[in-house]
């Protein structure tokens, strides 16, 4: 069963919240209420560019119980595959888009006694709704938010106004670093840490927590991988006996969709597992870019997550 159900929305408001970040407010085209969602959820936004369809996941940032609109924030990435550029350059008030229903791959741990949120840059987005939810539930949380500079940090003032001393800001241009080791070293049992941001920051935070003796079960991270750019290759479809070329700036999933082939997907960021596909042959090496398959599964070469992974080589044969 594919998850291609989409809702039509239009942009009600666009705001530049930092030098490279824009916030978009989306409402249903017929002004119907949107679904409630849980803190940490995201939607996939479907953008119809001139020559192709781009689908990117963005965290929902508003209050989960507000069904009148959704808010997303988009960081403009240079040299990207076009999604963030499209949102920044082509999407204005009144633009119509399609979005998926909310999906949550980064929920707060309901059994935690305390939540320690660690954000870097645009990684703040999933924490916006999460804090809204935790605050409404009266849960204990604190946010440690690292930004390049005051000008690049989105929502700093808003967060401080809303949550006061529970927000700690660290400005990189003033050599302020998140003192994570100290933060983690003296927490009572029942604390959970969540990290979202650039990959090096996530890796550093996870390593720091492990070295502080935190068990894996208390450490959570979210990272959406945009499909990396690579060289073109051919996908052979064993069941439908077709051959499709995947362009250098395309994912396998996008190439399939462009050719009218319906493949299952949800998060499009290598996290949810929905697009797991059997590999029946590979003329080259699989470059696994997902967070879903186990190391053993990756090593076996029998499975691939077609939303983010590609191959270096000439061709791969999939059971599709």
């Amino acid at each position: 069963m594919t998850a291609s159900y989409l809702r039509r929305v239009k942009v009600a408001e666009v705001e530049r919240v930092a030098s490279r970040i824009k916030r978009f407010r989306l409402v249903d085209v017929e002004n119907k209420p949107l679904s409630e969602f849980s803190g940490g959820s995201h939607v996939t936004v479907c953008m119809r560019a001139q020559d192709r369809v781009i689908r990117n996941p963005y965290s929902l940032m508003g209050c989960p119980s507000d069904t009148s609109s959704y808010q997303i924030s988009v960081l403009k990435v240079d040299n990207s595959r076009g999604g963030s550029q499209f949102m920044h350059d082509n999407v204005v008030v009144g633009t119509e888009l399609e979005i998926s229903e909310p999906l949550n791959l980064f929920p707060p741990a309901k059994l935690a006694r305390k939540h320690i949120l660690v954000a870097g840059g645009i990684g703040i987005t999933p924490f916006m709704s999460m804090m809204s939810e935790l605050d409404a539930l009266g849960s204990d949380f604190e946010l440690h938010y690292g930004v390049r500079s005051a000008a690049e940090g989105a929502f700093c003032k808003l967060l401080e106004a809303r949550y006061g001393s529970r927000i700690r800001l660290y400005l990189q241009d003033q050599d302020q670093m998140v003192p994570l080791e100290r933060i983690l070293s003296n927490q009572r049992l029942g604390a959970h840490m969540y990290v979202c941001g650039p990959k090096p920051m996530i890796d550093w935070a996870l390593r720091t927590a492990t070295l502080a003796g935190w068990p894996d079960e208390s450490i959570h991270s979210e990272q959406f991988n945009a499909p990396p750019i690579g060289k073109p290759f051919v996908v052979k479809l064993a069941r439908s006996r077709r051959e499709i070329t995947v362009g250098g700036h395309q994912s396998i999933l996008e190439a399939l969709e462009q050719n009218g082939i319906d493949a299952p997907f949800l998060c499009r960021g290598g996290a949810c597992g929905q697009c797991e596909t059997e590999v029946s042959g590979c003329d080259g090496f699989i470059e696994h870019n997902d967070h879903y398959l186990s190391e053993a599964e990756k090593a076996s070469g029998r499975k691939i997550m077609i939303c983010v992974s590609r191959i270096s080589g000439d061709a791969v044969t999939l059971d599709l």
């Binding site: 998850a3 969602f37 998926s100 229903e101 999906l103 949810c272």
Partner: peptide, 11 residues
């Protein structure tokens, strides 16, 4: 289980 973990609201 894998199917249910990705079950969507309204579906």
């Amino acid at each position: 289980l894998k199917f249910l973990l990705n079950l969507q609201h309204g579906r």
